[in-house]
């Protein structure tokens, strides 16, 4: 565990808790893509199946359990409790366009052809693109609420910090996992445009809105 990974994990935790808190506090999930949240739920469930087979540390187990629980709670709030506020007309990205190719790729390019490993790979690939429905929704409506922007910033920062963590681990531990690194870089690149808008607008106290 190095500082980059720890701060990355905490940023990840902050992101998902922030989103859950926002929905709960405002009693509304307007502007939030339920499809991105379903895919993140799928990411955590397929990746953390090793909770049942492999113990790494208390930290690792606790974080995994929290991620799964928060993801399920968020999906529940969007699709059940606050369903009336869910902006489905703007959440039109087709999930199968991501899930099917990502599933195919996980079968073809993985570390080991076993069920658990293919599911882990699937989750890594899916995570890299799971935010697309959310970004697509923002591009459709042309704006995002400030808390949603903070959520995206924390989530993007987590992956960017993981890249630094991988550089550190490569140099100091000789560790590298090509699948995670490539997917992590793709994921981070998807946030770049958003990072730019966040720094130029949200950090200056303005709401995130896209140029017409």
């Amino acid at each position: 565990m190095n500082i980059f990974r720890l701060v990355g994990d905490l940023s990840h935790l902050l992101a998902i808790l922030l989103l859950l808190w926002k929905i709960w506090k405002t009693r509304s999930c307007a502007g939030v893509s339920g499809k991105s949240q379903i895919m993140f739920g799928l990411v955590y469930i397929t990746r953390y199946l090793d909770l049942f087979t492999n113990f790494i540390s208390i930290y690792n187990t606790t974080m995994k359990a929290i991620f799964i629980a928060v993801a399920i709670a968020t999906i529940y709030l969007i699709y059940f409790k606050f369903k009336a506020t869910y902006d489905s007309n703007h959440d039109t990205f087709r999930m199968e366009f991501l899930i099917v190719p990502v599933g195919g790729l996980a079968f073809l390019v993985n570390h080991d052809f076993t069920a658990l490993e293919i599911l882990w790979t699937f989750s890594i690939y899916l995570e890299s693109v799971a935010i697309l429905p959310q970004l697509f929704m923002i591009s459709k409506t042309g704006e995002a609420e400030t808390i949603t922007s903070h959520y995206l910033f924390a989530l993007g920062s987590y992956r960017a910090l993981y890249i630094v963590n991988w550089v550190y681990r490569y140099y100091f531990e000789g560790f590298f996992d090509l699948i995670a690194i490539v997917a992590g870089c793709v994921q981070t690149i998807l946030y770049c445009d958003f990072f730019y808008l966040y720094v130029t607008k949200v950090m200056h106290g303005k709401k995130l809105s896209l140029p017409a």
């Binding site: 994990d9 995994k64 991620f67 882990w120 995670a180």
Partner: peptide, 10 residues
């Protein structure tokens, strides 16, 4: 490397 793959990262 062969054998069990340890995914210690989240």
């Amino acid at each position: 490397e062969e054998g069990d793959i340890d995914h210690d990262e989240l």
